[in-house]
Design a protein around this nucleic acid. Structure first.
Length: 573
RNA sequence: UACCCCGUAGUGUAACGGUAGCACAAGAGAUUUUGGUUCUCUUUGUCCUGGUUCGAAUCCAGGCGGGGUAGCCA
């Protein structure tokens, strides 16, 4: 029936395999419902993008849905500002939760009821140990813990105490509600874990209603269950929590507790988080970079936040493709940052209109071109996309070219402009360098060329070739603009890895930002709109900055350079 | 030191007991009005040792290496 060999079948990752099997076997009523559960206490970063693509992506592939749930179990840490930014970033990435936006705090009442049921079943108890004492009793990685002296309180006393905890009769930290599991289990998470702690704080959603708040382990799995989540996908560090995730659900089922209308239960599967070279994703360190002004805010294009990648000019398509390419496994890998840059280039190569811009100008004077003359030349907008059409670019006697594109004493294999050498000015003419002007210090300040009028448009009727084509901008028509050249924020591929006595800040790349106050742009760029992306020919991809551009005065951020085999060649030499 | 997870070219990732493949990187060449793009070719790999099997990257045992776990954070 099939000519397909096993190798021609599309290979899928282990999570999609699990989901496929579940659907085929009719588990969970055949549904696929996932969830993305951020804690609303920070901005999303590139690592979250992987989780988002997996959570929302798998749901979409299986015609299911993905919920967005704020994991707001800790009242002291959440802020509304983050909720908005998280939603915004997910939408930007191209995903949507529809009407399924929830908060873990939506379930506080249900969670409380179930906690009471567990107490009644003898599966939970109020513990008067202090935090330090709990740590003591917990044992260590190698030694078993021992039972809390409060473990065998009567159900009645537990119920009474838990009720009074809720009412706020006790100060913070004085008591906890704990699950009664087994203090000798090798998995420390199972040694009578805390379910509730007393916190007298105003919660952004529930206000002052609660004086006890559920811990992550107690809230998370049950929230999944209540929402009818089928596959609870998370990163590897929660793997060791899975036995507890299952214990809560199994135990609730055993004592007859179930969320209304849900016939099945969620399963947790873990995958490796995304690690990128030269990149930090620790909330704490990112915050430090902002606070100490090593960067200009959370959306500084050098940051690893999604907002920063946006401002840097990354496209959601590039990020999604990148995530798809790196795959989903349980192996803690580190992805070369170049892979992400590559995904951007691949996307923008197809879509970004080409323009000419000179970052570090040097003047070129065409000696035999009539003074005062101007002409409009046709330039192709995107050689990869004929439908992008052509535009007019003004040409005149005095031009700017890139300083890098002229050398008075060139090394071997240098194809660009140098004395006696002919090159093509893109879409314009062949020009040959005749002489140079120097200042008192001997520095070249202008290059004199002659042009061949027969080569208008860039083709020689006699079929003679040039080895280089360089970009240019007519000096009198050029629009000066600020351009920021971004490079990686850190010098070392693993910036979090620091020797004794140093911090990750010592790994900062002092050249991660170079501001060019006055690059010379071709005139059409003056009308660029915020967030509009271009390829500046031979330089890289640039985006019109969304924050600091004003109409008629665009500011550009370099998203990524073009590949450059010439710099590679130079490094070899 | 206990438990859990993970080891396939430089980096990622496939192969589900039957020819170790793909992408990126690297190198060589072709094409090119971007030293871009595109195309062709090349180099490089199953952590180790045993076992099971006609046959092992895959199953088993032991070792080695990496990561995770001792918040009333998530």
């Amino acid at each position: 029936m099939d000519s397909k060999t096993p190798s021609s079948l599309p290979s899928v990752d282990f999570i999609r395999e699990i989901v496929t099997t579940d659907v085929q076997q009719g588990r969970n009523e055949g549904k696929v419902i996932t969830r993305f559960p951020p804690e609303p206490n920070g901005y999303l970063h590139i690592g979250h993008a992987k989780a988002i693509c997996i959570d929302f992506g798998i749901a979409a592939e299986f015609a299911g849905r993905c919920h967005l749930r704020m994991d707001d179990t800790n009242p002291e840490k959440e802020e509304m500002e983050y909720i908005k930014s998280i939603q915004d970033d997910i939408h930007w990435l191209g995903y949507d939760w529809g009407t399924h936006f929830y908060n873990a705090s939506d379930y506080f009442e249900q969670l409380y009821e179930w906690a009471v049921a567990l107490i009644k079943a003898g599966k939970a108890f109020v513990c008067d140990l202090t935090a330090d004492q709990i740590t003591q009793y917990r044992g260590t990685l190698t030694a078993p813990g021992k039972d809390s002296p409060f473990r065998n309180r009567s159900v009645q006393e537990n119920l009474d105490l838990f009720d009074r905890m809720r009412k706020g009769e006790f100060p913070d930290g004085i008591r906890t509600l704990r699950a009664k599991i087994d203090m000798s289990l090798p998995n420390i998470n199972m040694r009578d874990p805390v379910m509730y702690r007393i916190v007298h704080a105003t919660h952004p959603h529930t206000g002052d209603k609660w004086c006890v708040y559920p811990t992550y382990d107690w809230a998370h799995g049950q929230s999944d269950w209540i929402e009818g989540i089928t596959h609870s996908l998370c990163t590897l560090e929660f793997e060791i929590h899975r036995p507890l995730y299952d214990w809560y659900i199994d135990t609730l089922i055993a004592i007859g507790c179930r969320p209304a209308g849900i016939s099945y239960r969620p399963r947790q599967n873990e995958f490796a988080r995304l690690n990128l070279t030269y990149t930090l994703t620790s909330k704490r360190k990112l915050a430090q970079l902002v606070k100490e002004k090593h960067v200009n805010g959370w959306d500084d294009p050098r940051m690893s936040t999604l907002r920063a990648f946006r401002r840097r000019g990354y496209t959601p398509e590039a990020i999604r493709n990148f995530v798809k390419e790196v795959g989903v496994t349980k192996f803690e890998s580190v992805i070369d940052f170049g892979r992400l840059e590559n995904a951007l280039r691949e996307d923008l190569n197809k879509r970004a209109p080409r323009r000419m811009a000179v970052l570090r100008p040097i003047k070129v004077i065409i000696d035999n071109y009539p003074e005062g003359q101007t002409e409009e030349l046709d330039a192709v907008n995107n050689p990869e996309d004929p439908s992008a059409g052509v535009r007019k670019v003004p040409f005149s006697r005095v031009l700017y070219i890139e300083q890098d594109d002229f050398m008075e004493n060139p090394p071997p294999k240098y194809f660009r402009l140098s004395p006696g050498i002919e090159v093509r000015l893109r879409y314009a003419y062949f020009v040959k360098c005749a002489s140079v002007d120097k200042d008192a210090a001997g520095k070249v300040v202008a290059v004199h060329c002659t042009y061949d009028p027969a080569t208008r448009g860039g083709d020689a009727p006699d079929k003679r070739k040039v080895k280089a084509t360089i970009h240019w901008v007519s000096a009198q028509h050029a629009h000066p603009a600020e351009v920021r050249l971004y490079d990686r924020l850190f010098n070392t591929s693993n910036p979090g890895d620091v020797p004794e006595g140093k911090t990750f800040l010592d790994n900062l790349n002092p050249k991660s930002l170079e501001v060019i106050p006055s690059a010379q742009l071709e005139p059409s760029l003056k009308a660029a709109n915020a967030d509009e992306r271009f390829q500046f020919e031979r330089l890289g991809y640039f985006v019109c900055d969304t924050v600091e551009s004003t109409p008629g005065n665009p500011v550009f951020n370099r998203s990524v350079t073009l590949k450059d085999t010439w710099v590679k060649e130079q490094k070899k030499a």
